[in-house]
Amino acid sequence: MTEVNITIEDVQTGKENTFVKLVTIAGQLDESNVDEKSTMIYELISKTPANLSLIFNLENLEYMNSKSIGYLTDWYGKISSANGKMVIVKAKPNVADVLQVVGLTQLIPIFNSLEEAKFAVLNDTPATPEAPAAAPQA
């Protein structure tokens, strides 16, 4: 079994009713571990039914197999339909390459730094008026 480590941290948003989690995946996601490890993310999503955004830190992820890309797409579907956003930070070139060909980078952008990712998750695109309502006092 190949090693993969997933850690989930809270990200302070300073906004009410907006939840951002930093998911760090390190190692290799392959057939031997992807089903087991993906349940962590599914649990996380089901615990926070709305306004949950995820930042994936893939700095130390060496490889993603096809199944994990399928899961990623599925999570994106769940998160975005519950008013959340999903971004990736610091993906290795080969991982970024696969995601680009699949077309996921159009849905889940990749940023070079955590600050950029946080900023992107917390700030709505100004041009879209129907963007999800941010917390009232923000």
Binding site: D74, Y76, K85, L104, A120, P132
Partner: peptide, 12 residues
């Protein structure tokens, strides 16, 4: 699925 979801509302 790829078409089902609107392209992200994340600023780039």
């Amino acid at each position: 699925v790829l078409n089902k979801y609107k392209p992200v509302k994340v600023q780039k």
